[in-house]
């Protein structure tokens, strides 16, 4: 069974929810992947349903040969994180998948209240590339085999990630089964 090889670490990871929540859901995702786009509202729904029981962590897994804007989008999320608004940018990227060009990213940066020029220049300098790469390689070593790939309490979730199935699995994990 595939296991998360890089443990969740609040010092490096982007997370929502409490550190002592009984369940941690990790997603490896690509902002330009249509499946991840479909998974985004599902994740939000299960977060709402689970409440304090769930901590959610997102790591970047850009398939940049397939999705030409995925790498810049991933870096944009890290740049936003450095400017204090990771989750706002995360949501903006997933809800504007049709335009993730550098211009599109600038527009989103403005929307979430960060400096669009700073965001783009950090992307072009590759300032956050090492972090994105670290995320990606940690995914490869953990058995991420496509996007999105989820881990529940460190174990890869190979079932369907439709809302009902995912929520059931999370509830089961919360009950400690």
């Amino acid at each position: 069974m595939a296991q998360l090889t890089l443990p969740v670490n609040p010092a490096r990871d982007h997370f929502q929810g409490f550190a002592d929540a009984p369940v941690t859901l990790v997603e490896y995702g690509d902002y330009e992947c249509p499946h991840c786009g479909r998974a985004h509202p599902i994740v939000r729904a299960v977060q709402q349903a689970m409440g304090d029981q769930l901590r959610f962590v997102f790591r970047n897994f850009p398939l940049s040969e397939m999705h030409p804007h995925a790498n810049h989008a991933a870096q944009a999320s890290e740049s936003a994180a450095a400017q204090g608004v990771f989750w706002e940018m995360h949501h903006a990227l997933f809800t504007h998948q049709s335009d993730l060009s550098d211009n599109g990213i600038k527009t989103l940066a403005t929307q979430v209240g960060v400096d669009p020029e700073k965001t783009i220049s950090e992307i072009l300098m590759g300032k956050h590339e090492p972090k994105v790469k670290e995320d990606f390689l940690s995914g490869v070593r953990s058995g991420v085999n496509g996007t999105p790939t989820f881990f529940i309490n460190g174990v890869r979730f190979d079932d369907s990630w439709d809302e009902e199935t995912l929520l059931k699995a999370l509830q089961k994990a919360a009950e400690g089964e």
Partner: peptide, 16 residues
């Protein structure tokens, strides 16, 4: 038909 396509994944990891 999926983004999880195995060959596409290996294409991303070639440098490794």
């Amino acid at each position: 038909p999926v983004c999880g396509d195995q060959m596409a994944l290996y294409n991303e990891i070639l440098s490794e």
